[in-house]
Design a protein around this nucleic acid. Structure first.
Length: 879
DNA sequence: TTACCTGGCTCG
DNA sequence: GTACGAGCCAGGTAAT
């Protein structure tokens, strides 16, 4: 099915404009389909670089064709044309029909406005045809067919705030909306235009999106500026909705997608009624003492209040409160501006005064509040010396528990659950380098935005909460996530002490080594080049030095990654040098240089951010800085860990679950042999080797154990013989026989994998032991490699997800215990299966004995959980 | 100059 | 095409 986004966008605009201002007589619908008809004789440089024409080209054309037909206009749809053909076709239409206006689609390559006069440019051949040129080539003067050229699509392309959409976003859209129909239902959300490169990446997007209108009897400047204006305002949702309805787009597309509709939803999602959009809203800016009193009185009396903060920074530890908003009814909201800059200061109540008035309510555990990502606001209030309490619900976490694979951003939730499109943060503050702080935003605009946020939050909570509690498993996971959110806020705030000097010293040493390696590389290469550039490196290795190309990247460039360099290093000296350089450069730029810069000047510690709703399996993700990927596998890398230190008089303690995912596999697969091995406390890889290779436990060789370990890990990831073979450097047949033997010895595992695959295919999701639901949108519908990938994810998800559930429960248990005992011990990091704590000396014995008990006692699986504890003067030595 | 993408590398 | 899940960095390039 043709991808309508960009094209529809252009068509809508075109139709609106035509309908309103320009009475078109004729619409030419001409598609630049490339592919088979591409004229190699004309464009030799492009030979071989063109994708084949998609088989369903006609289908792709149909949407636009029908759209235009629906207007009652005649249409010429003609695929497989190039610049010259388009011009010729236009000429044909113009001469054969007595027309005033022609609307055409085409490619921007073919036309260009030059000095208010039309010329025709073919950017592929660089051939420019002026008036005479057109005449001689086509036998008709351009004035006869055109007065003005306008590229609607192109204008939209270049409008600030309307992003150009690349293949990733386009695919994301398709996945997100599931079907063309859905996409259209959400048309007012579509912002952007499909870019040229889509054609090469996704055949379905081959539909060209530019629309050229050709207009007679109109001042060219006016027309151009009108069109530009139009293109700049396409995101107005109401207007778009109107246009859609007016032209019957929904009906039209439903007809078109009749087949698609018959296919069941790919990611069946929770059903709910989208509420009516309210006619008006009651949003109040609280800027007088009277209004403040009124607001206070009402929030104190309310049973549930949606709360939100506006701040100066996305970094929660650095953010300063600019304003706060509350809602107690749908369509209603208060915004209390507190720190908007400049001449807006006079329009605000005193920040300190307001916060003191709010404090009792904010800190009241019995005053129920609902927030979107409460962890952030907890930090913001903490920065102002306020302990936010009474967090009853978190809409972000509800959304995450319901559908962890989809966006949990406020805007997306509002769209999905409320059918509303709110003001986007970037609409207010811009983005990137030109982004302004929220304290620079007009109070009036800020107020609407902030009130809308809490308004949405309250409504979302009302809609999502019943969906969550309706399912026992989801409810349990949601309550866990609420606890985890609170614990994470504490861990983030605790931060971790970094030995800045040690890292600087390491940076210095690495820097010197890098210079040496660089010079050595230049010598071996016979010329200087940028060692950090894969592109330049590929030129040196594969062109200049003529080394064999081992593998290519997805884009077709010769790969220079570790695997390739390692192989080349067997025969040549340069790759080995590069490998060493790469490792050290990564170490320096990402860790030894970066971490000291991340130290918070106020606390003197590094505060990571744990994203609780980012990973589809339920894991956490750490960022800014990411403390979950600090090096450990190499000697030099581990040095970085020695810089993670306790305050004076304390130690670093680390506790990690042993073989957590394999234990989960033993549990869920119910495989007797695997469970027995764990029950007997065996070295699991050795036990596996013994089974697979048929040797007694004590006779397992190091090589056999290594292979067994690879098998064990591979199985967790849903690996096949190909993967295992390349991992172990053995033949595919040998790898297959290992796998076969494994499944013979552990038949429960084989059964479990087949069942999981079947279950995922049938219901579209899999579950963890504790009821976390993990959707696999691509398991239905998709085919070939994509479906296979979804099936592998389905195998892995219950194991990774259950492990995530377990450590989350452990975090809550440990933090509760610490608080109950009134200890000074702090959890400072979580690394998926490991908890890192900073423990004062006098609490060491207590924590060391209790920590593993707590971690292993969070759940009773069919195999024992084991946690290994270590401690030391730094993280490295705590293992 | 900025914003996005690619290739590569770090972790569990 | 080929093993799951993440985040971050430097270089390269397209758009401004």
């Amino acid at each position: 099915m043709g991808e309508p986004t960009g094209a529809i966008y252009g068509v809508i605009n075109m139709m609106r404009k035509i309908n309103q201002d320009y009475q078109a007589d004729y619409v030419a619908c001409i598609f630049d389909a490339k592919g088979k008809t591409f004229r190699d004789d004309l464009y030799p440089d492009y030979k071989g670089h063109r994708p084949p024409m998609p088989d369903d080209l006609a289908l792709q054309i149909e949407p636009i064709h029908k759209a235009i037909s629906a207007m009652g206009w005649p249409v010429i749809a003609k695929p497989g044309v190039e610049a010259d053909d388009i011009i010729a076709t236009l000429a044909e239409i113009a001469t054969q029909n007595d027309v005033n206006t022609i609307i055409s689609t085409g490619d921007k390559d073919i036309a260009q406005l030059v000095n208010g006069h039309v010329s025709i440019v073919n950017t592929m051949t660089n051939e420019t045809l002026d008036v005479e040129g057109v005449k001689s080539k086509f036998g008709v003067l351009p004035e006869q067919i055109i007065d003005y050229l306008m590229l609607i699509g192109d204008s939209v392309d270049n409008v600030p705030g309307v992003p150009k959409v690349g293949p990733k976003t386009a695919v994301k859209w398709l996945n997100e909306y599931g079907s063309l129909d859905n996409l259209v239902e959400n048309a007012d959300k579509i912002k952007g235009v499909v870019g040229n490169n889509l054609r090469e990446n996704i055949p379905n997007f081959a539909l060209t999106r530019q629309l050229i209108t050709i207009k007679r009897d109109c001042e060219i400047d006016d027309f151009f500026s009108d069109m530009s204006d139009l293109a700049r305002k396409p995101q107005d949702p109401e207007t778009l909705r109107e246009i859609f309805d007016h032209f019957g787009f929904r009906t039209w597309l439903r007809e078109l997608t009749g087949d698609a509709q018959a296919v069941p939803q790919q990611d069946a999602r929770v059903a709910h009624d989208i509420p009516e959009t309210p006619e008006t809203v009651d949003y109040v800016t609280v800027d007088t003492p009277e209004l403040l009193e009124d607001c206070l009185k009402q929030i104190q009396a309310a049973s549930l209040v949606a709360l939100d903060t506006e701040t100066t920074s996305l970094d929660p530890m650095m953010a300063s409160l600019v304003g706060t908003s509350m809602s107690i009814h749908p369509g209603q909201g208060w915004y209390i501006p507190l720190a908007h800059k400049g001449n807006m200061l006079a329009q605000q109540l005193d920040k300190t005064m307001v916060l003191e008035k709010l404090r009792p309510w904010l800190e009241d555990d019995s005053a129920a509040k609902v927030l979107q990502n409460a962890k952030y606001d907890t930090h913001v209030f903490a920065n102002e010396g306020i302990k936010l309490k009474g967090i009853q619900d978190d809409t972000m976490l509800m959304a995450y528990v319901l559908e962890s694979h989809r966006s949990v951003g406020m805007q997306d939730l509002a769209q999905r659950y409320l059918g509303r499109k709110g003001v986007d943060y970037t609409d207010l503050c811009g983005k990137g380098a030109r982004q302004i702080g929220f304290d620079e935003v007009d109070i009036e605009k800020a107020s609407f935005y902030a009130c809308e946020d809490t308004d949405f939050t309250l409504q979302l909570a009302g809609l999502m909460h019943p969906l969550v509690v309706a399912e026992e498993g989801l409810d349990r996971i949601y309550r866990l996530e609420m606890w985890v959110s609170e614990v994470l806020a504490k861990i983030e705030r605790n931060g971790v002490k970094i030995n800045e000097k040690a890292l600087q010293q390491q940076s210095h040493e690495i820097g010197q080594k890098l210079v040496e390696l660089e010079n050595k590389a230049y010598e071996l290469a016979g010329q200087p080049f940028n060692l950090n550039s894969p592109k330049q490196l590929a030129e040196i290795l594969f062109e200049r030095m003529q080394l064999p190309v081992i593998r290519k990247t997805p884009k077709g460039a010769p790969s220079t990654d570790e695997e390739v360099l390692t192989k080349l290093a067997q025969d040549y000296p340069l790759p080995a040098t590069l490998l060493e350089y790469r490792g050290l450069a990564k170490l320096k730029s990402t860790y030894t240089d970066k971490l000291p810069k991340m130290i918070n000047p106020r606390t003197g510690r590094v505060h990571t951010n744990y994203a609780q709703a980012a990973v589809i399996t339920g894991r956490l993700a750490s960022s800014d800085p990411n403390l979950q990927n600090i090096p450990v596998r190499t000697e030099e890398g581990r040095k970085v860990r020695t810089a993670f230190v306790p305050e004076k008089g304390g130690v670093i303690m680390s506790a990690d679950y042993s073989q957590i995912e394999l234990r989960v596999m033993a549990h869920v697969s119910d495989d007797a042999s695997l469970q027995l091995a764990f029950a007997q406390g065996k070295d699991i890889h050795r036990a596996t080797a013994s089974e697979v290779f048929g040797v007694p436990l004590e006779e397992v060789s190091a090589e056999q154990r290594r292979a067994a370990k690879a098998i064990n890990f591979g199985l967790i990831y849903g690996m096949g013989a190909f993967g295992l073979a390349s991992n172990l450097g053995i033949t595919r047949d040998a790898a297959q026989s290992y796998i076969d033997r494994y499944f013979e010895r552990y038949p429960g595992v084989a059964t479990y994998m087949n069942l999981t695959r079947a279950k995922a295919n049938e219901q579209g999701y899999v579950e963890t032991v504790f009821g976390r639901r993990l959707w696999l949108p691509e398991i239905k519908g998709a085919k070939g490699p994509r479906k296979a990938a979804a099936e592998r994810a389905a195998i892995n998800a219950p194991m990774q997800g259950t492990a995530a559930d377990l450590i989350k429960m452990a975090m809550v248990a440990v933090q509760e215990w610490i608080e109950k005992e009134g200890l000074k011990t702090m959890i400072i990091m979580q690394v998926h299966d490991e908890l890192v704590l900073e423990v004062p000396q006098d609490e060491v014995d207590l924590v060391k004995s209790r920590l593993p008990e707590l971690m292993c006692g969070v759940a009773e699986l069919k195999v024992p959980l084991v946690a290994e504890v270590g401690m030391g003067p730094n993280w490295e030595q705590a293992h």
